[in-house]
Computed example of a mutant assay.
Amino acid sequence: MKENKSLHSICRWTFNAGKGGFVPDDMRPKWNSKNLNTVDMIKLVRNRVAPRLPGNIELGIEMHYDNEFDEKTAPEIADALVDSKIYLAMVTPGAHRHYAYGGVASLDPQERKKAEEFGERTVNLAYGTLRKAWHPDPSKWPTVVIWNGSFGYDLASIGIFQMYQNLKESIAKLCQYEEKLGGNLYFAIEPKPNEGHPALLIPTVASALVFWNKLEEEFKITRDKKGVNKEFGHSEMIGLDHVYDTIEEIDNHALVHMHLNSQGYNDGIILGGPGKYDIDHGTRVNGMNIAIAGLIREADFNRWKGHDMQVRPYDNEEQGIDRVIRSVLSWEACAQAAQELDKEQLMKYLNNRETAKAEDIMREALTNAQKYFDRMYKE
């Protein structure tokens, strides 16, 4: 019987020297960009993270162009991925670092043109130098995530409508560009309500679904391999339900990638939640993650689950590595609990309005998940 692999992708940006601002920017000097480049990070994951994970897990890497990979560094990165048996899971244009006045949605035509070219270069490298690091299974090929950190504004005006029109046209153009290269990559919009602007275009999963529908309607962009990169924490930031977000994605055939993390408010231990900034804790063992794990299992989702997380600003390098391992194992524990949950009995209780007994089943699953985590972590 073929072993069912679980795909987890580790984000390059997790491995940083420190946040700065109100907390130290040099807590982890070994992870300073001068000491730890992307190739070094891949080797660190291979040597320090992979050995502590169950054998059914396959690992991938997520990277921003052009600060985490570019034309100069891509060849060595591709070699390191292949040598480490780690796959290219996701690329994203880090255009927000260069084009903060809207990026491809910008009302400045020069910025918009440069941001569009930036996205094309990202796709070119995925198809070119990095191609050999794709997973051998086409259903697990990389995702191009379109993150909307620069697609925002801080001034209420009629210009917002034109920004949205620009965004549609530019993303449609990028999809058409990629289609000519082969149409093999997946595309995912990552919704976010704010940061780096007070307000952003495409703030929610529902907004992303509407966006893809408009691209299909207005530009004839195929919906195949197009969807949402739901980040759990982004939904939590504005008090939305990421369980229901998942249902919307499944119902609209838009479940192509996801970012596992948490703002923390739903486990009763760490602080965060609605109205808070983007904290990016790792995955937690909690009831909502068990529910989502069950939903995606029933939907036969078996693509990359990215850990878009930040180690804590007071962690050293060893503690930071441990946080990443804990995040992966936490999800696997929730997935195991979801698989073993008595769905038939749960639905019977819900159908009979016996919600307290249904709650008992979910609480038992949560208890089991923590036990699974403890066992995997010790092993």
Score class of each variant (00 low, 15 high):
residue 16 N to I: 12
residue 18 G to L: 11
residue 18 G to E: 14
residue 19 K to G: 11
residue 28 R to E: 07
residue 35 N to Y: 12
residue 38 T to A: 15
residue 39 V to E: 14
residue 43 K to L: 12
residue 44 L to G: 10
residue 48 R to W: 03
residue 62 E to F: 05
residue 63 M to C: 09
residue 71 E to G: 01
residue 83 D to I: 06
residue 85 K to G: 03
residue 88 L to F: 07
residue 89 A to S: 13
residue 94 G to M: 02
residue 96 H to Q: 06
residue 97 R to H: 08
residue 98 H to I: 02
residue 101 Y to A: 14
residue 107 L to P: 08
residue 119 G to A: 15
residue 119 G to T: 04
residue 123 V to T: 02
residue 128 G to N: 01
residue 130 L to D: 04
residue 134 W to K: 07
residue 135 H to P: 06
residue 135 H to M: 03
residue 137 D to R: 04
residue 140 K to V: 15
residue 142 P to Y: 00
residue 144 V to Q: 12
residue 145 V to C: 12
residue 151 F to A: 12
residue 152 G to L: 08
residue 157 S to D: 11
residue 157 S to I: 13
residue 161 F to Q: 12
residue 163 M to I: 05
residue 164 Y to G: 06
residue 166 N to V: 11
residue 177 Y to G: 10
residue 180 K to A: 13
residue 184 N to T: 03
residue 187 F to G: 04
residue 189 I to W: 01
residue 194 N to R: 14
residue 197 H to S: 13
residue 200 L to F: 02
residue 205 V to L: 09
residue 222 T to A: 13
residue 223 R to M: 11
residue 226 K to T: 00
residue 227 G to M: 13
residue 227 G to C: 04
residue 228 V to D: 04
residue 229 N to Q: 08
residue 229 N to P: 03
residue 230 K to R: 09
residue 240 L to K: 07
residue 244 Y to H: 09
residue 251 D to R: 14
residue 256 V to E: 00
residue 268 G to D: 02
residue 268 G to K: 03
residue 276 K to I: 00
residue 277 Y to F: 02
residue 279 I to K: 09
residue 289 N to K: 00
residue 290 I to W: 02
residue 292 I to F: 02
residue 292 I to K: 03
residue 302 N to T: 05
residue 304 W to M: 00
residue 305 K to G: 03
residue 305 K to Y: 08
residue 316 N to Y: 04
residue 318 E to W: 07
residue 322 D to I: 03
residue 329 L to N: 07
residue 331 W to V: 02
residue 332 E to A: 00
residue 339 Q to C: 05
residue 339 Q to I: 03
residue 345 Q to K: 15
residue 347 M to V: 07
residue 354 E to K: 13
residue 364 E to I: 02
